[in-house]
Design a protein around this nucleic acid. Sequence first.
DNA 1: CTGAAAGCGCTTACAG
DNA 2: CTGAAAGCGCTTACAG
Lengths: 338, 338
Amino acid sequence: MVDRKGGPVTLRSIADQLGLHVSTVSRVLNGRDGDGVRAASGDTATRIRRLAAELGYRPDPHGRGLRTGRSELVGVLVPRLSDLVLAMIYEGIDEAAGELGLTTITANTLDDEQVRRQRTRMLLARRVDGLIFGDARLDSGFLDELAADGVRFVLVNRRADGHPSVTPDDRLGGRLAAEHLLGLGHTRVAVIGGEPFASTAVDRTAGFVEYYREHGAGDPVVLRSPFDTAGGRAAAEQALRRPDPPTAIFAVNDFAAIGALGAARDHGLQAGADIAIMGYNDTPLAAELPIPLTSVAVPMHEIGRRALELLTRSLAGEEVRSQRLAPTLVARASTGAG
Amino acid sequence: MVDRKGGPVTLRSIADQLGLHVSTVSRVLNGRDGDGVRAASGDTATRIRRLAAELGYRPDPHGRGLRTGRSELVGVLVPRLSDLVLAMIYEGIDEAAGELGLTTITANTLDDEQVRRQRTRMLLARRVDGLIFGDARLDSGFLDELAADGVRFVLVNRRADGHPSVTPDDRLGGRLAAEHLLGLGHTRVAVIGGEPFASTAVDRTAGFVEYYREHGAGDPVVLRSPFDTAGGRAAAEQALRRPDPPTAIFAVNDFAAIGALGAARDHGLQAGADIAIMGYNDTPLAAELPIPLTSVAVPMHEIGRRALELLTRSLAGEEVRSQRLAPTLVARASTGAG
DNA sequence: CTGAAAGCGCTTACAG
DNA sequence: CTGAAAGCGCTTACAG
C-alpha cells in the first residue's frame, strides 16, 4: 500500500503514473463486471487494473465512506464474547461479512441496559451501516426506540417481538429435550430455565413444559438461574435438596448443565446412571466432558451467517422475515444414552 | 445524531446555527482542556459545547480520518475468538481501547499462515493505526516482514523474538506446576505440551521439565497435541497406554486437561485419587467442573489491557519493552488438593 | 478571538 | 471513451 516513492497508493498516484484522470481510474476499479456500459476502453482498463494490482492499491475507506455515506462496517453487540455460544455465532457473522467485503465491530453489553445504550451509541458514532444484536431482551423497549430512529438492525440468537431475527427454533428444541427425557421414563424432572428476560430461556422452557403437559406427564419443576456454570450448579443444588428430587434435569444451556453435573456429583449421584442431565447448544465441550453431555445441537455458525445476510438484505431495502433454524437432539452418556 | 431538520449533525450545521465558522467549532470541540491557548472566548466555547451536546454531535470518523491519517482503529488477530483464553484477553484489549476512544476490529486466523496474511491485509486496508497479534508463531518470518514494512504492532499471549509482547511468565508458570506435582510426590509425570510453534506451549513445558531436572526428579514424558479437548484426550490416552503410565499429567491448557480428565475416566482412574491432572490458564470452567481442576492462573484480562496500552505507547513513538505477568498456582481436587 | 482556505481520497453526474 | 468539477466532514497552519 506504499508505492515506490514511499507515498501511499491512491487513485491519484495511479492516475498520474498512467497519465489518466483520477475519475477514470475510479470508474474502472469500481466497475461491476459486464454491466453493459464500459468504464473505459479495454486497453486502458487493463493498464489501470494491472498497475493497481502491482502496487497493491486498496481504496481508503475514509475517502470512500465520506463520499458514499456508507462505512461497510457492521456492529455486533453481544452479552459477552467470552460466552462460547456467542463467540461461535459471531464467527459465523464475521465469516459471512468478510465474504461480502464488510467488516464487523463487536461490543460486549453484559446484558446491562446502560452498557447496551452506551455501546450502541459508540457504534453509531463510528457510522456502522447496520447492527446485529445478540442480547435482545423481552423486557426492554430499547430496540423499539432504535427502530423508530431509523437505525437498521437484526437480532440473532434471542428474538424480540416486532424485529427481524435469526434464532434456533427454541420451542422445538425444548420439546426435543422433553421427548428424550420422557422417552427414558423420567416423570420427576426439573428445568434449569435461565433468565426470564431472554427468549432462549423462555422458549426452551415453554417447549419442554408444553410437551410434558401434552403427554399428561405432569408439570416439571422450573428454576431460574444465570446462564453460567455457577448458576446451573446453584439451581441444581436447590432441585436436589427438595423432598422429591428430580430424576432428570434439563438445563437450557450447556454451561448450566456442567454446573448441574457438579452438583449431582456432590450429592453422590452419577450422571447417566443415578440421574439424567442434559444441556442445550451442544457446544464443542459437551462431547468431550468426562461424562459426555446429552444436548440439543443448534447450528450456531449458520445462525450467525444468516443474521448477517438478513441484515444486508434489510440494508438493501428489502422487507425481511425472521428465521428459525431447527435444532437436533444429540444423546450421550449423561442421560444414560449414546 | 440527526438535527431538527433531519440532516446529520456536522460541524457545519452547528456553526451555521450559531453564526460561527466551522473552524471555530472544530477548535473548541477538539480543545484539550487547559493547554494555555484558548480555542475561543469562554462564552463562545460554552455556546458551542452546549449545542453540540444537545444535538448529540459525534464527529464523523471518515472526515476526521481522511484529514488526520489516523483511524483510531486497532486490529486484533487471534487464532480463534471461540477459544476462551483469547476471548478473555480480547475483552481486556477492547476495554482498554474503549477508555482511550479507540475501536478494535478482530479477526480469526486459525493459526494458518495464509489466513493470517490475508486478514492482516484486510485490516491494513481498513487503515488500522496498529495491530495486536495473539497468534504469533516461533517458526514464521511474517512478523519480521511486517515490522520491516513499518507496520506498528505488539504481541499478546504468545511472544516472538524481536517484537514487543505482553504474555504470562510461562516458564515460571511451568515451574509452579512442576513444584506442585513434585511436592505431591509425583515422579512419573507426563506433560501434554501443546503445539511446538507457540511460545506458550514451549515455555510452559520448558519450565516444567527444567524444574524436575533441577531437583533430580528425572525427565517428564513430553507429548505434543493440539490445544483443544480432543487433542488433550488423545495425548492422555497415549500416555496412559505406556508400560509405565504417569501418576500425574500437566496439560499446558485447561481444555487439553479436560480431555485428559475424560481419558483418565475411560481408564477407570479417578482424578485426584488415582491420578493427578492439572491444566493452565484457570479458565472460569476449571473451578466449576464436576472434579474441580487444579490450574495455573493467568491474568488474562490484564494481559489484554496491557497489550493495548503497550501498542498505544508504541504508536506514540515510544520505545517499548515486553512485559511478563506472573501466574499463580490454584490447587483443586483434580490433583487431590484444594 | 475568529475566519478563511486548503486539502485529505474518493465517487458520481455531467460535459464533450 | 475520458476529463473536469463538486463536495462528503474534518483539521490545521495562517492571517487579521
